[in-house]
Design a protein around this nucleic acid. Structure first.
Lengths: 225, 225
DNA sequence: ACCTGAACACCGTTCAAGT
DNA sequence: ACCTGAACACCGTTCAAGT
């Protein structure tokens, strides 16, 4: 299913090609399809050959998560108030994460354990420091905000089974909506009324815009004291 | 390691005891230790015997997540403003989740697919409707807030390896902190300054209080327009 | 109705061996 | 230095059989 971009004929593994196809597999078939054996097979190599390049599977996941974070194009400082700068930074992170919804959740733990993640964390903490809150509060709120950001992508409604065929995907969404609208209107009137929005995102850009606004608004408000 | 609370001598499976020990295993040894085979062994029964009570593993996970949500003691309506009522509801959810950090993340998907989850969702959506935002926005913001809530518990710093011995846990935290403080002070001054708060929560109650405040403050602010 | 036993198709990973 | 082959200790799950 996944087109092997670089057929390996030389029996030599290119570590960069390795994480590239790892990314491709996870994007197209889901994280559970990304296995050592599968990846080895795609590179026409023994599973054990990969262990020459990655200590274990966790390090492979670390590498692809770091790769996604590396693709964030950190905006140049714009001289605006801290919350506008922070919103721009978060926006850039969202832009990098959105093509990889299956990997988004994976990146969270790498914000403090990878080079590109640390770069982003440093910048976020700097901006939060400008807000006037304490260092400890900046740390907690920053981590919480980044977690929300990541989960905005990872839990986008209707993305649970992104690895299915588009038509099959529609069926799943319709089924979910049906289960909600079939509930007792006496007990769950608000759930029923919100069934559409709870099961599917119509305007994706608006979803991310509003989601980001909720995060930034919260930070602004707690910073005001 | 896990004391089998109910030794099974009758070769009959009690489904309630099943999910009880499933909860115990996940709590004490982590979600990856909760396997069909392990659970069957603890009940002195063949792995396949469990399939008489659960269609597959996902349904087992659903059952234990729903059980956690069932333990939420929904506060009685207090007549206060919507945000105070919502905070009280979220507070109650946190209280139920905190004893089960390894299961918290699992509950997110069950807020709309289990009886107790729907009860909580209905109440949250009702309160958000009082805030004056549209039904669709209430849906998106509600889902996002609940996700943040759940992740407050699931990603509490220093809880990554909760299944380790307390002393070993301290070592891990110290190691993480050391990796941060060893960074270049020129490139990552704010990360270094925040190293303590980024790796460990000193005052747990304050952590949850502030985290909850950030979530509610955001909702209040976007509701104001 | 409920449990057993053997088997299948997978995992990640170790270890010794090849070149 | 880098890859192979066989094996180990696991998974979830199917299927046919027992009682």
């Amino acid at each position: 299913l996944v087109p092997s971009v670089t057929k390996n004929t030389s029996r030599k593994i290119d570590p960069e090609a390795l994480i590239a196809s790892a990314l491709a597999i996870a994007d197209q078939e889901g994280l559970e399809s990304l296995t050592i054996r599968r990846l080895a097979q795609q590179h026409e190599v023994t599973p054990m050959a990969l262990y020459r390049h990655f200590r274990d599977k966790d390090q492979l996941l670390h590498a692809i998560a770091a790769e996604v974070l590396r693709q964030v194009e950190v905006p140049a400082p714009g001289g605006g108030p801290w919350y506008d700068e922070l919103r721009a930074l978060f926006q850039a992170i969202l832009t990098a994460l959105r093509p990889h919804p299956n990997l988004a959740a994976l990146t969270f733990r790498r914000f403090l354990t990878s080079e590109p993640g640390l770069e982003l964390s440093e910048r976020a903490l700097l901006l939060l420091a400008e807000s006037g809150i304490s260092v400890d509060q900046a740390a907690q709120f920053g981590v919480q905000a980044v977690c929300s950001l990541v989960n905005l992508v990872a839990t986008e409604p209707g993305m649970d089974d992104l690895n299915l065929a588009p038509e099959e995907q529609e069926d799943v969404i319709r089924a979910k909506r049906a289960r909600l609208t079939a509930l007792s209107p006496r007990r769950f009137p608000h759930v029923i009324a919100a069934a559409d929005a709870l099961t599917c995102v119509f305007d994706r850009d608006a979803y991310y815009e509003h989601g980001l606004e909720l995060i930034v608004a919260g930070l602004r408000e707690v910073a005001r004291g």
